[in-house]
């Protein structure tokens, strides 16, 4: 395995990380306001689909991006209405919404394109790519960051922005207070329900970016149920990061690595097994994380 190949693998890892990172940020943004959002998967899928449909008709990157983000936000808004306003159980809303988005996209695909499977168009455009020409001195570094889109970089910036939002702004402080105790926040004049609804809609916007990257980042295509559990992988990433936005970058990168390994290892191992790797690794990672947490909890008790 030569160096440039490794650089290419890292490059794929960055691409696979972005949707997971955005969804994980969306997940932790809800968790911090005491909302358990299970519908991330549906938000991602809706954004991917709408972005591709907009792309098919307009061939315009910006319009597709905005349409995708709006679709993610719209799904999230419905989730927020059911889950927060009408107090429906999170699991029920989440699973029903995920299945609803899945069937609606499959339905519309057949109505618009007359076929199941995949949507690909001739004139469709991919996201704008950035090539860092100042890295040309090293082929390794250049290959590592080759052809990443603006939104790939945006993911890391948003993670930092969310960190700053929580730490430094009054609004972020209110957000956290709702997460700690909704009734206490309410009694001090913070409108907890409004903050929770806003949190879910923002998670929809974040998932919207993730879904758009997923559909238009590498090859511009929509396949039926193409997110295949990434929303849930992101939930794992967020819970491993204990809802800390900067740590979420690390955990998302881990899952991005697993996703890219499942593609790169296909040359060596049967693809049926490599396809299972990211999912098995999610289970494994959550477990290992649980072991570490329980051990940490045990330590102070033993000291005392």
């Amino acid at each position: 395995m030569n160096n440039l190949y490794l650089a290419a693998v890292i490059n794929t890892t960055f691409r696979y990380t972005t949707p997971v990172l955005f969804a994980a940020l969306g997940s932790l943004f809800c968790t911090k306001a005491a909302v358990f959002n299970v519908a991330l998967e549906g938000q991602l899928l809706a954004a991917s689909f709408v972005a591709i449909v907009a792309n098919y008709y307009t061939n315009n990157v910006l319009i597709s991006l905005l349409a995708g983000v709006a679709a993610g936000a719209f799904v999230a808004w419905i989730v927020a209405i059911f889950q927060i306003k009408w107090k429906v159980r999170d699991m029920v809303v989440g699973t029903a919404m995920n299945l609803l988005v899945q069937s609606v996209t499959a339905f519309l695909m057949q109505i618009i394109y007359g076929s199941r499977g995949t949507v690909q168009g001739f004139g469709m455009v991919a996201l704008t790519k950035i090539n860092l020409s100042f890295l040309k001195f090293s082929p390794f570094l250049y290959r590592m960051f080759e052809d990443l889109s603006t939104i790939d970089y945006l993911g890391y910036i948003v993670a930092v922005l969310i960190f700053i939002y929580f730490k430094k702004t009054v609004s972020g402080f209110h957000h956290l207070s709702v997460g700690i105790s909704g009734t206490a926040a309410d009694s001090l004049g913070v409108k907890s329900q409004r903050i929770q609804i806003r949190a879910v809609v923002i998670s929809g916007i974040l998932c919207g970016f993730g879904g758009v990257v997923h559909a238009m980042g590498n090859v511009t295509v929509f396949a039926e149920n193409m997110t295949s559990g990434r929303g849930f992988i992101a939930m794992g990433a967020a819970s491993m990061a204990q809802s800390h936005p900067l740590v979420a970058i690390g955990s998302s990168l881990f899952f991005g690595t697993m996703l890219s390994l499942s593609k790169t290892l296909q040359g060596y191992i049967n693809s049926y097994f490599t396809e299972a790797i990211p999912y098995l690794c999610t289970v494994l990672a959550i477990t290992v994380y649980g072991v570490i947490v329980t051990m940490q909890k045990r330590k102070p008790a033993m000291k005392a």
Binding site: I233, A276, V283, I286, V291
Partner: peptide, 25 residues
């Protein structure tokens, strides 16, 4: 895994669906 290590049952059961589907195929 949930009982011993507090690995969320929701995520693990769902993730195993995908893994099992590929392996049984």
């Amino acid at each position: 895994l949930d009982y011993k290590f507090k690995a969320s049952l929701i995520i693990t059961t769902l993730m195993l669906n995908y893994a099992i589907n590929h392996i049984t195929n």
